[in-house]
């Protein structure tokens, strides 16, 4: 079963001069249930547009997007999103920031609090629950943003370059963390990144988008037995990374039937 289905999706933005700019054309993609799929590709190729369309932030000009749980679930129960910046609310402490998506839908219950605390524990921030967001480092804030996305146990998790504002070390740490979370929850994840190694490390599948609007994405299945630090130096990993890179730059041998 597919968690997200993009059917022949075209998105046009209105430009300031009254024209139309086609950001995405006849885009097809089936995101499988429970998979971690990354979108990679040159800047401006429409990655964010795909994500925002899936989040229903923009309506496609033509085509359709089917989402799992569309009928029954609301808000972050169905789709949760994480951006490049943590976007925490400065007037709420960490715990209340995490509970924000709950508060939009209903009264916060004791179980909700317990779940928020458990998520904080999972990312190693138990002690920060009563602190103000400004007091945390960028990496800690982004961890809180991930907890906020997970608090309602969404069917689908959307992430738009969530780690690209972090320093290299923090970034690596949080990448492994995210993969661990994914393996524990098996939450369908659509992940945008411009880092090839990040995509290979995290993903079950990678969709390589082209700067040529309308060109179908190249799909690449990633099969790695483990996703720890050791994998980064294995030949399998570097082969995948080279293949994805070739795909991005339009060289052959990228496509591995997926």
């Amino acid at each position: 079963m597919d968690a997200i289905r993009f059917n022949d999706v075209t998105v046009q933005y209105r430009t300031r001069r009254g024209g139309a700019h086609t950001a995405l054309k006849n885009f097809d993609l089936a995101v499988r249930d429970q998979e971690f799929i990354s979108l990679v590709g040159p800047s401006g190729c429409g990655k964010s547009t795909v994500l925002r369309a899936a989040a229903r932030l923009i309506a496609p000009t033509s085509g359709s997007i089917a989402l799992e749980g569309e009928r029954t679930l609301r808000g972050f129960e169905r789709v949760a999103i994480v951006f490049q910046r943590p976007n925490l609310l400065p007037w709420l402490n960490v715990l209340d920031n995490i509970l924000y998506p709950v508060r939009v839908l209903r009264r916060v219950s004791q179980e909700d609090r317990a779940r928020a605390s458990a998520l904080l524990k999972m990312v190693g921030l138990t002690d920060a629950s009563q602190r103000a967001p400004e007091e945390l480092s960028g990496g800690m804030q982004q961890r809180v943003a991930i907890c906020r996305a997970l608090v309602l146990n969404p069917k689908i998790l959307l992430m738009d370059e969530p780690f690209s504002a972090l320093d290299a070390l923090t970034r690596e740490e949080i990448q492994f963390e995210l993969r661990r979370i994914h393996e524990a929850t098996r939450m369908t994840t659509l992940f945008v990144t411009h880092s090839v190694s990040e995509a290979v490390l995290l993903s079950d599948r990678i969709a390589i988008m082209s700067s040529a609007v309308g060109k179908a994405p190249i799909l690449c299945q990633i099969e790695l037995n483990e996703r720890s630090e050791d994998v980064l130096t294995t030949e399998k990993f570097t082969t995948y990374a080279r293949r994805v890179r070739n795909g991005i730059y339009g060289r052959s041998d990228a496509a591995v039937a997926a």
Binding site: I81, L89, W91
Partner: peptide, 25 residues
Amino acid sequence: PADVLDLSRVAGSSHLQRLRMIELP
């Protein structure tokens, strides 16, 4: 910030909720 508004939209908040929980504070 636009991202914060988008986040609240995805979270399913109504106009009034957005005003009360995000924009006013």
